[in-house]
Structures are given as structure tokens and as C-alpha cells.
Design a binder for these strands. Sequence first.
DNA 1: GTGAAAGCGCTAACAT
DNA 2: ATGTTAGCGCTTTCAC
Lengths: 353, 353
Amino acid sequence: MSKDKPQRKTTISDVAREAGVAQMTVSRVVNGGNYVSAEVRERVQRAIAKLGYQPNEAARILKGQRARTIGLIVPTLADSFFSACAHTVQEVATRHGYMTLIQTSSNRAEVETGEIDMMVARNVAGLILVPMEMKASPGLLAVQSAGIPIVTLDRVVKGLSASEVLVENAIGAEEGVRHLIGHGHKQIACLGYDADLLSIQERIHGYTTAMKEAGLHPQIWKVESARSVALTLQRKLEGPQPPTALFTLNNVTTIQTLHTLQQLGIKLPRDLALVGFDDLELASLLTVPITVVRQSAHELGRSGAKLLFDMIRTGAPMKELPKTRLVLPTELVIRNSCGCKGVSREIVAAGRG
Amino acid sequence: MSKDKPQRKTTISDVAREAGVAQMTVSRVVNGGNYVSAEVRERVQRAIAKLGYQPNEAARILKGQRARTIGLIVPTLADSFFSACAHTVQEVATRHGYMTLIQTSSNRAEVETGEIDMMVARNVAGLILVPMEMKASPGLLAVQSAGIPIVTLDRVVKGLSASEVLVENAIGAEEGVRHLIGHGHKQIACLGYDADLLSIQERIHGYTTAMKEAGLHPQIWKVESARSVALTLQRKLEGPQPPTALFTLNNVTTIQTLHTLQQLGIKLPRDLALVGFDDLELASLLTVPITVVRQSAHELGRSGAKLLFDMIRTGAPMKELPKTRLVLPTELVIRNSCGCKGVSREIVAAGRG
DNA sequence: GTGAAAGCGCTAACAT
DNA sequence: ATGTTAGCGCTTTCAC
């Protein structure tokens, strides 16, 4: 039907012939174009455009260069927080002329390890990840000693000289809990899971700080998984001395909580006040708009990618990579689940076919 | 701090030396091991194990092999429909031992074109995309004639021999609109944008079919962009003869509509009934749970990836690639915005730190 | 069965 | 400022 001959891709030597120069000159033009006269550069660029030349990555890599590709590992793309983050990382990478290998670890350290190996095999120029383990695995250390810059998002890895972008989890949680305290609540419970994650630990710490500061007794309900949130909540709320307010540790917990309250017929904020960590899409359109501590996924992605490309540009080779730690602020978005009355008006964007 | 020498990776010739054979023999052992005596194979395998040899992908690719990487281009990852889709594609790819280069086209054909070129430069083994143009660009044709399998999602590209995964847009829309008609509505307006996309055209077609079938007069409000939804809606609803029901053409339109109705103080479903195309996260927790025509992003991704790997496996080289068209069903999820009374109970999953 | 040679497309290092 | 040479690690081709 179509062309039978797979028409050999145009190579650097095709361009060189077309422009009447040596391959090396073309290579120089492609890579920054230094030490090339304006006239020749012009001619080469025309030839490139005419032939639709694209440098062959494999050849570059074989020569020892790094791929113009970065790796990104997030727990899942099915959570809008991480997909927003991935979106931004990819955008920044594109702006730098890089592509992005995106993998999901499904919250499993072994999976992450395998993915790191595959990325190393592809000579990625840098690696951004939301790490699953608190201490550096041999794989990650190998990446580091291969001189590949690493940025971790949301969490830190001990024993690794990677740059980190974190979130003011403790301060954000404090602020949220203080807001509930400001509404006069004394019995504020803190609900969530994954207590082994740094981010969650910090939020719990923030909760505890705010409670103690107000002379209140912290009540922390750690559950093992997202699924058990509903059970725990139901048991506690129907028990003696139910709390008058709730602080939920992440978006999934908040959603589970909302569903459970709906089932139990408990009305927000009349029967129970709620502040959650993490914003929800459509939060303002819910039966009761939810007050949340918002962290920006886009900012996390943007900062992480920016840091990575700084490192890639600097090209600190194998040696001590410059290690940076960035901590992003959170924002208390006051809606109605906390007991406040006002109406929040929010804007939506983005489109699909 | 760590190792200063980046310890050159062991190559095929290291293994050959260690085993006392030629590189070629090692290569044969690595790739299936045919035409090698058991004794030599044994020796080579021991050497491979001892040295921890990993074949270099770049070198393989340079020799004309395809990368164990596929490309995926979606309009955006900031829309949960497409990120869910990307999530599943990536999962399937991983299961096949492939990685996934994920790029976003931002709904712009030129961007898509550039990304396709970069993927070709990386020798991807296959390409999955939600195409922005209805006719094949030179770039896409080049991919095809290079023998790289292509699968398009949600839309078709004319003049391209790619496999396609589509959605029963027309039938789904018909079903949704018929449900509104079943509630006794006569004045049902259809609202949305991006009318040049096949998927939207089909939904409009389904709407029109259902209306005509019932002897009703179609009322289609095409707007130019997501932003103008609110304006149009407000103007029409405050004008003479406002409709009693609304059919919105995609999730963004539905959300804009919800916000607008909230502002105008119009209550669902008392003042106005609503059925939307595309499900919303948290739809069941909204003030009024929204009835929607749901299409499965995961199924779209899964089917597309499956199709692609079928093609990659078959390895139909440059010749006529087997072209398949798959059309996925939609599902009418009845909640309350249509006027139905029942309570829907839904489950949430997925977790984050 | 096994091996030697050639070369994929590119760029670092060295001419000129 | 531009060109020449060599070789990255692998597999295809052909010889033995």
C-alpha cells in the first residue's frame, strides 16, 4: 500500500553532503553551534530543515553522551496530585528539549528498583522520583555514582546526595488544626494511614504541635490502609465521646471520610467539622465545600524539574553533586466544612474532547 | 565521597575474553543461544553472571533494533481522563518489559508533530496517540513507513493505516438524552465546545438522533471554548424559553455548568435536569450527584496498549500493518441530576502520601 | 559451530 | 573556523 522501502532515516552525513560541509560541522551546529561561522551555520540549518534531520539518540548515547531524556517515577498516575505533578515535569522537560520516561511504582519499592535499573540502562540524563524507601537502595546509589543527578519529591532518602523538594507539611497541618481550634473545637481527631511516610509523619507532628499548644489532647487514629478508614471512622464516631472535629491526613482519607459521613447521615459542619490535607478537585461543588490545606502539585513538579535541569546544565560529573533542599509552602483554603460561612468561588480550566 | 571512577560497564568483549570465545558467540548466547554448543554456552553464561553483564541498549538500537520503549502522546496529563489512560498504558507496557515516553501535545498539532519526531529519533517500538489532526501529517506517515506500529485513541486520522480505539460516543449520547426524554423533558439543550473533534461530533449526532426520534427539536449551543460555557449558559437560561434539561458534551462543560448554576441559584434537578458526557471524580458526593454517560479511560488505555503490543509482537515489518478498529461501550450512570431519586453508592480507591 | 570484519550514527580529540 | 580520524558496543554477513 504505502512505500515499501522504509526510506533510511536521514543521518548527519546526509546533512553534511547537502550543505557541503563535514559531519563534524553539522554536529557542532546541532549542539549549540559554537565555533561555526554564521554563514555556514545558516547553510547547515537550511539543510537540516530541508531533510528533516533528527539526530539519532542511540548513536549519541553510544558515544557516551547522556540521553536527552529524563526519568520520572511516581507512585501512580491515577491520582490527580501525581498526574498534575507529572504533567508539569514533562512540560519543563520539553521546554529544555528533553523527553520524559514516566513510570509508576505502585507504591512498591521493588518495582521502583526495577524501573531505576531500566532507566539507567537507557542512560537518562537525570532522575526525578517520589521515593518509596527512606534509605538509599544499591540501585539508587549506583545512579548517583554514575553521576546522574537525582531529585526526590515529597520525601527524602537517607544516605543519598540528591536534591529534594518537600512541602511544609508540619506548618500546613498546624495551620489547619489551629483553624479548627479557632472555631472552638476541643476534641479534634486526626485520621489517616501510611504513617511511615515522612510527609504523613510531618503532618501528624503539625497536628500534635497545634493541639498541645492549645492545651488539647491529641487523638491520632492511624489506620493501615485506605480501605480501613471507613471502618475506623464508623467505630469511633458511634463510640462514646466522639470528636467534634476531624483533621484528615490526605485526600484519599478525606474522600473516604466524606463517603462514610454521608452514609452515617452525619452533616458537615453541623455535626462534625472537617479540615483535610490536600485539595480535592470539585471541592467547591460538594454538598459542603471542604476546607483544606492545599499543596501545589504543579509547584512540586516545576521546582523539581527546575532543580534537575540546573544540575544537568551544570553537569557536575560523578563528583559531589550540589545538593539542594526546597520546602514549598502550603495554603489553607477556607470553605465551609470547618464551620465558616462564606462562599468560595473558584475557577476551573483545562479541556478535553 | 563515593567511587570516583565511574567503573566502565562490562561489555560484550569483556565477557568474550573471560569466556575465551569471540564476541559473536556471546551475542548468540545472549540472543536465544542457537547454534552454540552446550559446553560453550555454559561457559559464556558463567562469564556473564560473574561479570554482571547487561547488553547496552543504545548499541543494539544503533544496529537497527527497536528500543524497548513505546511513545504515548496525550493532550494533557492534567485531565484525569487522560492521566488514567496514560497510567494504564504505562502499566501494560511495563508488563511487556517496555518503558513509556509520555508527552503532552497541549491540544496543538505542531507540538504533536515535534514530539513524534523526537520519538522517532529514539527509535520507539510503537506509538500510541490521541491525535490532534484529522488527516495524517508527513511526520505520522514517516512513522508508519518506518514500520513503527501506531494506535490512535478516541479519534481517527484519515489516510493513516493505524489501529484505532474509539468510544460509542453516539450511542452513549443517545442513551443519555433518551433518559432525559424518559423523564418527560421536551426542551433539552445540548451544550459544549470543540465541535471539530470527531468524538464531540458523534455525541452531538447521538443527541440529535434521540431528539428527532422523539419528535423533539434539537437545540445545540456550540461555544468556542471552555471559558465561554458560563456566558452562553447564563444568557440562554435567563432568556425566553429556557430549556428544562441540559445535555453537556464533556466533563469540563459539565463542571462549568455546575458552577454557573450554583451562581445563578438554579437547583438541580428541580429547576433544570442535567446529564453529562464523561464521569466526574467525586460525582456522587456533589450537592446533587450527577448522572453521566461514562467512558472508561482505563479501558481505552488498556485496549490501545494491547493492540499496540500485538502489532509489535507480530512484528509486521514495514509492510501492511494489520489495522484494527475497536469501539468501546459507554455506560449510563444514573444518579440524581436527571431527576431520578435513588441513592448511588460508589467506592473510591488509590492512595497517596 | 565458531570467528573476523564491517559498520550502524555520532562526537571527542586532534589536525589544519 | 572547519575537517579527519577513531571508536563507542553491538549484530549482520560471510568465511572457516
